[in-house]
Design a protein around this nucleic acid. Structure first.
Lengths: 195, 195
DNA sequence: ACTTTAAATTGACTTATATCAAGCCTATTT
DNA sequence: AAATAGGCTTGATATAAGTCAATTTAAAGT
C-alpha cells in the first residue's frame, strides 16, 4: 500500500466518511511526502512549526530541554499519528519544543493554510478533525490524571498495559523521560516489578 | 445580561461567527438553566456524564478520590468554561471523576445527542467547537509540560502569573491539590517566595 | 570480529516533597 | 459571646525519586 493509500484509509476509517476522487486529488496535491533519517529534526525549538505531518512510517519524540540541559519527552509518536507542536502550528508562534525522528521517519506534510482549505472543502477531513480532537481531549485528560495521582511505578504499569509495543520500540531512557523519571529510577522499578 | 445573552455572546466571540435568530431559538430550546448550591455535585464518580454545562456563574472542581481517600483536583472551572467529563460524555462510559460546585453555580446544560444536533445545524457552534478543542490541545500540552518538568515552586509561580484570580477565589488547599501538592508544601512555598 | 560508543544497571548519597501531629487563626453557628 | 469547625501554618520525621559515579551490557561503526 502506498503512503497515500495508508493516509486515505486512515481518514476514512477515523472519520466514518468516504473520500471522493476529487478529495483525494486535493490531498495528494498538497500533502508532500518527506523522509527524515534517525536523529533528524522535524521541528527545532525557537522555530515556528510550519508543517503538520501524518506519520506513515517510523517514530518521533517531542521534547524540551531545560536550563540544566535535561531533556524532557512530552510525546512519543508512531504510525498514523499527527506530528506537530499544535500551539505553534495554530498560532504561528515560535515553538518551545523539539521534534526529532527516533527511527527512519516518513511523513506526509502540509501547512496551516492548506489545512484550513481541507477543513472547508473535504467533509471527511473535518469529521476526522472532530474525532481526533475528541480523542485528544480524552487522552490528555487521562494523561493528566496519571501524571498527578499515580506513583512512578503505577505510571510504568499503565504504560505497559496501554502501549506494550513502546517498550520494545523505544530505548528505556526515552521511556523514562516520557514517564517523567530518571533512567536509574525506571531501571529499579523494572527490577522490583519482577518479584 | 441574561444567562442566554452571556452564552450567545460567548459563542459568537469565540467562533467569530454570528448566531441567527433560529440558531438562538434552537439553543434556548435545548439548553436548560440549572443551579447548584455550593458543595452540590454536577457529576458523581461511577455515573455517566449525561450533561455538559456552560458555566454562567460560579465555579467547580473536577477531582478523583484514591484508595486512601485523598482527593486529587484535575481541573478548576469558572465562568465561560464548559463543565463535563468529556470522556464519559462522549463515550457514555461511567466516569472516574467527581464534579462539585465550589461556589453557587449556574450552568446552561444539554445532552450528548443535542450537542450533535447543534454541531450539524449551527455553523457558529461547530466553529466554536474547533476553536475550543484547539485551545484545549494547547492548554493541556502546556499543563503536561509544567506537571513534568517544573518543580512545585515553579508550578505555583506559573499559576500566579496565569490565573492570579484563582488565588483569591479558591481556598489554598484546593490550589495545592490542583498543583499536585500537599497543603503543607504549598504553605511553605508561599512563605519562602516572600523572601 | 574488533573497537568504539551508547545504554542499562547498581550502589551510595542527596534532595524535594509527603506525612503526621500540634497549635493557631478566622469564620460560621448556636 | 461561646463554641465548633475548617483552613492555614509550623516543626519533626519519613519516603520516593533524583543525582553522581562506577561498572556491566548491548549496540553500532569500521
Amino acid at each position: 500500500m502506498s503512503n497515500f493509500e495508508v493516509f486515505f484509509d486512515y481518514i476514512q476509517k477515523i472519520s466514518g466518511k468516504l473520500l471522493s476522487e476529487d478529495d483525494k486529488q486535493l490531498l495528494m496535491a498538497h500533502f508532500k511526502p518527506k523522509k527524515l533519517r534517525k536523529r533528524q529534526y522535524f521541528l527545532q525549538e525557537g522555530d515556528v512549526c510550519k508543517y503538520i505531518g501524518f506519520i506513515v512510517k517510523g517514530s518521533a519524540r517531542t521534547f524540551t530541554v531545560d536550563e540544566k540541559g535535561h531533556e524532557n519527552i512530552l510525546k512519543l509518536s508512531v504510525e498514523n499519528w499527527w506530528l506537530a507542536d499544535f500551539e505553534s502550528f495554530y498560532l504561528l508562534t515560535p515553538s518551545r519544543f523539539n521534534i526529532e525522528a527516533l527511527e527512519e521517519l516518513e511523513v506526509l506534510q502540509s501547512t496551516n493554510t492548506q489545512i484550513e482549505e481541507f477543513l472547508k472543502n473535504i467533509p471527511a477531513f473535518s469529521a476526522m478533525q472532530n474525532v481526533i480532537s475528541q480523542n485528544n481531549t480524552i487522552a490528555t485528560q487521562k494523561r493528566m490524571q496519571t501524571a498527578f495521582s499515580y506513583t512512578a511505578e503505577e505510571r510504568y504499569e499503565d504504560l505497559v498495559s496501554n502501549y506494550p509495543n513502546f517498550l520494545q520500540r523505544f530505548p528505556q531512557n526515552m521511556i523514562a523521560s516520557y514517564l517523567g523519571l530518571s533512567p536509574e529510577t525506571l531501571s529499579r522499578i523494572k527490577k522490583n516489578s519482577f518479584k
